[in-house]
Amino acid sequence: MSEEQGTPQENPLDPIKSDISASDPVQIPPATPPPFQQLPPFGQFGNGMGQQNLPNATISLVLGILSIPACCCYGLGLVFGIVAWVLAGKDIKQYNLNPAAYSLSSLKNTRAGKICGIIGVILSALYIIALVAMIIAFGWAALRDPETMKELLREKGLQ
């Protein structure tokens, strides 16, 4: 306080005013960003610290997770999983080219999205392999008709 009161413009009887004027020169330097830093784009997660998020982090994470519920719905899980995998792989390459420009949290999300996508692809692939194996083992006609299917299973001693 003693330093602030020493400036000639300030009224020593008004401590609030002198506080504000004293804090002003401290606040100004961080308020103006250095010219080389980019402002974080709208709608990002994390405080950014002047770093961008990877462009497909959220999309790949969401698609990777959705690949499991969509696992058996008309093979949609396979599509979701592959899209998540490819997008995440692209983003990780982009991050490796320029690690300083992108935020770490988005990299973590992208990696999670990649792994979720891979697992979704594996599950969907297993499902499709099982389907093909059943068609090969029992034949299309038996699968279309549940009664012949049951007979077949009884013959083979499975049920």
């Binding site: 997660f45 994390g46 959220t58 994470l61 969401v62 990777g64 997770i65 499991i68 696992c71 949290s105 973590k108 999300n109 990696r111 999670a112 792994i115 979720c116 697992i119 594996i122 599950l123 297993l126």
Partner: peptide, 29 residues
């Protein structure tokens, strides 16, 4: 949890999501 994580950005969120996802895959199998 993923929705909340994308909004608030937890430090271990991505790791937790991965682990939960693997657990779910194992449960399904």
């Amino acid at each position: 949890f993923t929705a909340v994580h994308l909004k608030l950005d937890f430090r271990l969120g991505a790791l937790l999501i991965k682990l939960m996802f693997m657990g779910i895959a194992v449960i399904i199998l």
